[in-house]
């Protein structure tokens, strides 16, 4: 798609390269209700149709480990010709009721040393310290969401970091070098493409091109020389950006961002 009328852009208009620097999610998005239910249903089906666990292969007959394993297994109901089974006569093979999912229980160790593989898995919290403290300059917040770097220019207010271009350089180099000038060298990024993902034509004739990039490691911290221009910075989610930038500006940039 191109603009309907090919307007001529006047020479010498200020052109800026904006950098959309994102931190991709660290944790997968939360399952929706239907996703969770469907996964549980499929899981139950899969367990029902699973082959019997060949315990005789893993535990040698007559050993202590075999005894430990067998002693914690639930015994299925055996067939008895004098009993009526309304849900079908038990059909047991290798100690498993064939018409049901098999439940394999792993024995717990008596000792509490860490060498036991069946110890409970400790999961790290998805809500981090930065979330609790409300620290928006941290990269360790909102782990399920994509974060974008926004800086607060003392003249223009909050926006994506922007840099005036030099005609001899490509947009992505201008943006990446500019980022290091304001935020320090110790930052590892990966530019998605040399091509801009969008452009905004302002009323004063200036043009803003947007370059996408991902932060991989390191820290963005405003250097001393830039503290005169930039007040602060923040890593924000799409919804937070909408609140910060206002609907007008967001309507022109929202499609470049993901949740």
């Amino acid at each position: 798609m191109s603009t309907p009328a090919k307007r001529v852009v006047s020479k010498g208009v200020p052109i800026r390269a904006n950098l959309i620097l994102s931190r991709i999610p660290i944790v997968v998005p939360e399952e929706t209700k239907i996703e969770k239910q469907y996964r549980q249903y499929q899981n139950a089906l899969e367990r029902r149709l699973m082959w019997t666990f060949p315990a005789y292969h893993y535990f040698k007959k007559g050993t202590l480990s075999e005894h430990k394993f067998l002693s914690v297994q639930k015994k299925p109901i055996t067939n008895n010709p004098n009993v009526w089974f309304p849900k079908g006569v038990p059909d047991i093979q290798h100690g498993r009721e064939r018409s049901k999912a098999q439940e394999v229980i792993l024995p717990k160790s008596e000792t509490s040393d860490d060498s036991n593989i069946t110890r409970p898995v400790e999961k790290n919290s998805i809500v981090t310290e930065a979330d609790k403290a409300g620290d928006k300059s941290s990269l360790e917040r909102q782990l399920r969401k994509t974060l974008y770097l926004l800086v607060n220019y003392k003249k223009g207010g909050w926006s994506f970091p922007k840099f005036d271009i030099d005609e001899s350089r490509s947009l992505d180099l201008t943006a990446e070098n500019g980022l290091r000038k304001i935020g320090g060298e110790n930052i590892n990024t990966w530019t998605v493409s040399k091509k801009p993902v969008g452009a905004i034509e302002s009323k004063d004739g200036s043009l803003d091109f947007f370059i996408k990039s991902h932060i991989l490691a390191g820290k963005f911290d405003i250097v001393k020389e830039s503290k005169g221009d930039i007040g602060e910075y923040a890593w924000l989610t799409k919804t937070e950006i909408q609140e910060k930038l206002g609907d007008d500006y967001f309507s022109q940039t929202g499609y470049m961002l993901t949740e």
Binding site: M1, S2, T3, K6, R7, V8, V9, V13, I15, I165, E167, S168, R169, S170, L171, K195, P196, V197, G198, A199, E201, L207, F209, F210
Partner: peptide, 15 residues
């Protein structure tokens, strides 16, 4: 992206 590239071509051919 297509529209932005068109605009860039007209505004700054070198870039």
């Amino acid at each position: 992206t297509d529209a932005a590239m068109d605009l860039l071509q007209r505004a700054a051919p070198d870039v």
